[in-house]
């Protein structure tokens, strides 16, 4: 088995995309000084709302738009409680993750009419890039051909975010606010407004992540389908700090592990162990980074 096969690269990208989109949201919050652990629930909510909107409108793109809007709305709960009322963001996140699990399972029975897993030939998934005429291009064709446009978009977003944080006025201010909110406040910067913006943007990105998960990677919704990816995104932010490219690398590590697990499953590894692989690898990466950070005296803890 050659892991450098292009189809393997393709499956790494597939696995990475939802995680990196959510992690980008987590990163924005982290830069602004808000600890956002509610990514898991938001990704699940995004997946569900995207499928619901696609189901109701008959259009995958309306599904994406609906998922993004609905998840941004959902994240407003965190934004209001954690930023305006200074509630404990960790407890809020625990509650919101559980709430998303319950709400999606409940509403899918009400809206989609089934429990467990919803899939239907009528449910429109996102188009593939191959369908958009990319399949004849060498290398890019095999790698991206089977992917939705959101996959390259996610990577472009990472680069755009990195540039935005570095070079623009609002990016600079967001960084300052996260590092020393009192100082920022005394310079007349609106700390609360920037933080609300970051949390809502994270909600939108999680909505995009969920849409990619449910309408891009597959075309279905099943209960709890985010399956810990939101938590992996949280870890990626802890590993990458406030550097978008580092966060991307952490997400890619997870993507490689998941794709590899999938391959090994094909080679006879029991599914249960293959499923566990990405989490074990993520945890090991975290421990190694923690050990290194200890030596460098940069604690990972952002809370």
């Amino acid at each position: 088995m050659n892991i450098l096969e292009l189809t393997f690269v393709a499956s790494v990208l597939t696995a990475t995309t939802p995680v990196v989109l959510a992690a980008l949201g987590g990163l924005l919050c982290s830069v602004s000084g808000v600890f956002n652990m509610a990514l898991e629930g938001q990704m699940l909510w995004g997946a569900f709302t995207a499928v619901s909107f696609s189901h109701l409108t008959g259009s995958a793109w309306w599904g994406v738009a609906g998922g993004v809007a609905a998840t941004a709305l959902y994240s407003a709960v965190l934004s209001v409680l954690a930023v305006t009322f200074r509630a404990d963001p960790v407890v809020i996140a625990v509650g919101m993750n559980l709430l998303a699990l319950g709400l999606t399972a409940f509403l899918m029975r009400q809206i989609l009419g089934v429990g467990g897993t919803y899939t239907s030939p009528d449910l429109h998934g996102l188009p593939t890039l191959a369908g958009m005429g990319l399949d004849h291009v060498p290398v890019i064709g095999p790698v991206l051909g089977s992917q939705s446009p959101l996959v390259p978009a996610a990577f472009v977003l990472v680069a755009a975010t990195a540039w935005w944080l570095r070079r623009t006025r609002s990016g600079l201010r967001l960084r300052g606010i996260g590092q020393h909110p009192e100082a920022a406040e005394s310079l007349g910067l609106k700390v609360g407004a920037y933080r609300h913006g970051a949390v809502l943007a994270a909600g939108a990105l999680c909505g995009l992540a969920g849409a990619q998960l449910a309408l891009g990677n597959v075309t279905l919704f099943s209960e709890g389908m985010s399956a810990g990816r939101g938590w992996v995104a949280v870890v990626a932010v802890m590993l990458g700090g406030v550097r978008p490219l580092r966060v991307l690398s952490a997400c890619l590590l997870f993507g490689v592990a998941e794709a590899l697990g999938f391959r090994l499953q094909g080679a006879g590894l029991p599914q249960q162990l293959a499923d566990a692989a990405p989490y074990v690898i993520t945890l090991l990466a975290l421990i190694l980074a923690g050990a290194a950070g200890r030596r460098r005296r940069t604690p990972l803890e952002t809370a």
Binding site: L81, M96, G102
Partner: peptide, 25 residues
């Protein structure tokens, strides 16, 4: 659907956190 009870649980946690905040404030 019985999943409604999970909704209640999630809401309880969020509201408890919100109320704790007003106390802290």
């Amino acid at each position: 659907p019985s999943q409604l009870t999970q909704v209640i649980q999630g809401l309880v946690i969020v509201i408890v956190a919100a109320l704790a905040t007003t106390r802290v404030l």
